[in-house]
Design a protein around this nucleic acid. Structure first.
Lengths: 154, 154
DNA sequence: CCCGATTTAGTTGTGCACAACTAAATCGTG
DNA sequence: CACGATTTAGTTGTGCACAACTAAATCGGG
């Protein structure tokens, strides 16, 4: 990093970095909201369903690790999915601390209709597969760096 | 895009794209939350202050355009900034529909302490200036594409 | 075996995002 | 000028994110 930038320059640059990410994330959310509307899912609910469709029944804990969400977010979200009849939650008999989440028949069936979603999203981005892959790689590296940052004073 | 990908492949790929962005945005939020804590600002409040520091007094409408936020989000956020003594809101005399937001002396003074924030964030990312610039360019292009998407069915 | 530490979900409270709506001021056209 | 259309903030309701906390089950060292 160039050490001759003024703090004022950095304040502007800084705005653009964090803000671009923030804006892109919300723009994605808007597009998903429209596309997911007739599935009756929100964007975070769709992410949870993706994990369940791919990996099947699992405890809340593991779902949270894959989604990077804690129980404070997942518990009410899963309750809503259960109320919608898409999943069931059951305390494990072996370890009564953990709650296993599994798809209902209806939840599993929804996968068929969800299969149309990715193409519509991909079309909306206008990005090709290679470009998306590179962007994803950078974002994942960024996430890992941010997660591991120690944030000592300047 | 290759047309020989199965819908199942796309469901997985799709998860990774939207999810990477979602995760990166939240990871950024976490880092900002820690760094901004002793300024008494949240991440979105900091974004609003950045705009005010750079462009000065302006109506809620224009603030919303720059932040891509509507009044439903901005009104309570600005109320909290006002309660914290950082901004004042006043109905315009010329057009009483619009409310002008301006920094208080305290709000303007906070800029000095905020000047330390960008370097700490930049350090946490581990990205160099050029890499950040390229990532920002891609994200902005993505946001524009998503904003302009018409979302016709497949 | 026992009791403190750990693990796992859930609850509570705060704040952001956004859709849908209301209220009031202003604009524009006949 | 009158009056409907538009603009601008604000309000309400839903859902997500996360910190801080609680409750209950399990684990493990003495």
């Amino acid at each position: 990093m160039s050490s001759d930038s003024s703090d004022d320059d950095l304040l502007r640059l800084d705005q653009q970095i964090c803000f671009s990410l923030h804006a892109a994330s919300r723009a994605f959310g808007s597009v998903y909201r429209v596309v997911l509307k007739d599935l009756g899912l929100t964007y975070p609910q769709y992410l949870a369903m993706l994990v369940l469709w791919e990996h099947g029944e699992q405890p809340v804990k593991r779902l949270g690790e894959q989604l990077r969400l804690d129980s404070g977010t997942l518990s009410p979200l899963l309750k809503r999915l259960e109320a919608a009849g898409l999943v069931r939650r059951e305390r494990s008999a072996r370890d009564e601390r953990s709650v296993h989440v599994r798809l209902t028949d209806e939840g599993a069936a929804l996968r068929e209709r969800a299969a149309l979603v990715p193409r519509r999203i991909a079309a909306a981005t206008g990005f090709d597969v290679e470009e998306v892959r590179e962007l994803r790689t950078r974002l994942d590296r960024l996430t890992r760096a941010l997660d591991g940052a120690d944030l000592e004073g300047p």
